[in-house]
Simulated scan of single mutants.
Amino acid sequence: MKLTVETVRIKDLQFGESTSLRDGVLYVSKEDILAFAVGEPCFDTLKIDIARPGDSTRIINVVDVVQP
C-alpha cells in the first residue's frame, strides 16, 4: 500500500448530517463531535460553533477555562 498526500481546497465549512467533502464544501457533523467529546470528564457543557475569518467572535484557549 502506498500513502499519498493530497491537497484539497475547501471553499466553505458547514454543519451537516455527516462529515463529508462535496463540491469544495466541508460538512462536519456536530452530533459526531459532541458524541466524541461527551466522554471527556473535564467538560460540563459543550457548544460547537463555526467561526469564519472576519466574524466578530472571541476564541480562547481551552486552558483558560479548564482547570489544569
Rank of each mutant, 00 (worst) to 15 (best):
T4S: 11
V62S: 04
G16T: 02
E17Q: 06
T45D: 13
L21G: 04
V25Y: 09
A51I: 08
S18H: 09
T4M: 00
T45L: 09
P68F: 10
V8Y: 08
I50Q: 03
D64F: 02
T4D: 11
R9S: 08
V38W: 11
L34T: 14
Y27N: 03
Q67L: 04
I48N: 13
D12R: 11
D44C: 07
I33P: 07
L13T: 13
L46Q: 04
V8A: 13
G16F: 02
D44E: 15
T57I: 07
K2T: 12
P53S: 14
D23R: 14
D49Y: 00
P53D: 12
A51F: 14
R9C: 10
K47S: 14
C42H: 08
E31L: 09
T57S: 06
K47D: 05
P68T: 01
N61K: 07
M1A: 14
K47T: 08
G39P: 02
E6M: 00
A35E: 15
M1T: 03
Y27S: 03
M1E: 09
G39E: 13
L26H: 06
S20C: 10
P41I: 06
V65T: 03
E17K: 13
L21A: 10
V65W: 01
T4K: 05
V65A: 11
R58K: 01
I59P: 00
E31V: 14
V62C: 00
V63T: 00
G39R: 12
E40P: 02
M1H: 10
V8I: 15
V63K: 05
F43L: 14
V25Q: 07
L13W: 13
Q67A: 04
E31W: 12
K30P: 09
V38G: 14
D32E: 15
D49G: 01
V38R: 15
M1R: 11
L26W: 13
V25A: 06
T4E: 11
K30W: 07
K2F: 01
N61G: 04
R52M: 07
Y27W: 00
T7Q: 09
V62Q: 01
V8K: 15
K11A: 05
V66K: 02
D32A: 15
G16N: 03
F15M: 08
P41T: 12
F15S: 06
E31M: 14
